[in-house]
Nucleic acid binder design. Sequence first.
RNA 1: GCGGAAGUAGCUCAAUUGGUAGAGCUCUAGCCUUCCAAGCUAGAGGUUGCGGGUUCGAGACCCGUCUUCCGCUCCA
Length: 513
Amino acid sequence: MSQKPEDFFKNVISHCKEYGYIFPSSEIYDGLSAVYDYGQYGAELKKNIREYWWRAMVQMHENIVGIDAAIFMHPTTWKASGHVDAFNDPLIDNKDSKKRYRADVLIEEHVVKIEDKINKEVEKAAKRFENFDEAMFRSTNARVKEYQDKIDSINNRFKNAMDKGDLAEVKQIIVDCEIVCPISGSRNWTDVRQFNLMFSTSMGSVAEEGNTIYLRPETAQGIFVNFLNVQKTGRMKIPFGIAQTGKAFRNEIVARQFIFRMREFEQMEMQFFVRPGTEMEWYEYWKKARLKWHQSLGLGNEKYKYHDHLKLAHYANAACDIEFAFPFGFKELEGIHSRTDFDLKQHEQFSGKKLQYFDPELNQNYVPYVVETSVGLDRLFLAILSAGLKEEELEGGDKRTVLNLPPALAPIKAAILPLVKKDGLPELAEKIMKELMFDHIVTYDEKDTVGRRYRRQDAIGTPYCITVDHDSLNDNSVTIRERDTMKQERVKISELARILDEKVSLKSLLKQL
RNA sequence: GCGGAAGUAGCUCAAUUGGUAGAGCUCUAGCCUUCCAAGCUAGAGGUUGCGGGUUCGAGACCCGUCUUCCGCUCCA
């Protein structure tokens, strides 16, 4: 299909809506920006992806266990993790250049410029006088003092403004200092606005001071604060991992690209605790293991690539992304980070509790190092859906829309279809459906011609259609039609449950790992 | 936040210079019985995103507002 990427992406979005995968949130009220609801099929697909991840991590690793920590956490958690300080930026726009700046950075840069002027004065004076006493010069020279007073006054004003959260004052500082935009050179600024990454709410029915709590911006911290609980009660020996899936919330400045960047999203994280000094081995191990997991889905190995981070976050000593070829380009799907002992150390410091492990082999205590794997469930969903959606040209110029989902992840595993709606075929089909229902989500459809029903199932990604025809009444056989090849195979009704199970169980995926 | 585009049936879109909102698909009920969509009959579905204004008359023109999409800015 010679389709433009934007158009294809639009198709993905409308297909999601039209076939019950994803709806805009609160749509009857015109929607809520960057929030989406998973529909009847979306919820199943998402659940299946989560299930596959969980089994691959928890079930297939003796030394990994899973937890389900709360979204609400003690507010100090986020001071310790660095989220409170690091993601609380006052931003300002220049209306002419359309550039956005951090207001604090603009002011800092301005202060640096004044400092440069002082230094120049000092240099000049140093050349002029012999036996130059720099300290004396700095404290007595009128011009230098003037500059220094300016700096102190700006710094004071800024500190006061930030402490009080007075953003109008922050803007006034920028205006008073006559700070110009480096690009447009103009002083045409918008108001300063505070962008806080974290959503806050209040605990307790009465709004009082000091009871502000945050909706977690990552699930990882729920694992770190439970490190000792799990290690002790599970008698875990290093190296070991703790996995968790769950919602996280980030107040993105601009959330875009459908479910790729949402304000409410779901993460699947695993924190792997290792002996200090071995973290790079494990980092490499998990990089490979996670890529292999993604590739097992069969979306095409060429759709993945590593992207190593050169600029590292405050807590990491190595980091890379597994990127996926989304319709809008290669973008991060999963992050693998070597987080060092940063988080546990921070929590030790803020909680006053020892978060250490006694290593019997070394006969010593230490704070473990952590290798994190963190994948966006919604992004994975989008990856699978956009890789799967195809407009096929069939022989004879016929077209069909097919959603090529990995069978083990498909929402509906099979549709049971009577060839015609009479002669006892519907009854037999329903009987088959009721039997298969015990193991899988299956559906029944008798409306329209069978070819049309096949196409309907293709569009929602059902991997198998089981067709009951007139012969079925005599030979106790039915045909299984495969979604991707459209080939049919005749099988015994008594064998159906086993055959279907073989084709759609997660086991087939897990065995590839 | 800035710039651009767009909001009409569940979906895709029409509606002449302003003159009674329509089609296809989908859906529902029935007919037909056919292994790869679009046979027949009937039916349902709309305060044209919302609020004002101009006009005898607004889906269309004007103002405001909301939402979505694209680009820029931010992004652990």
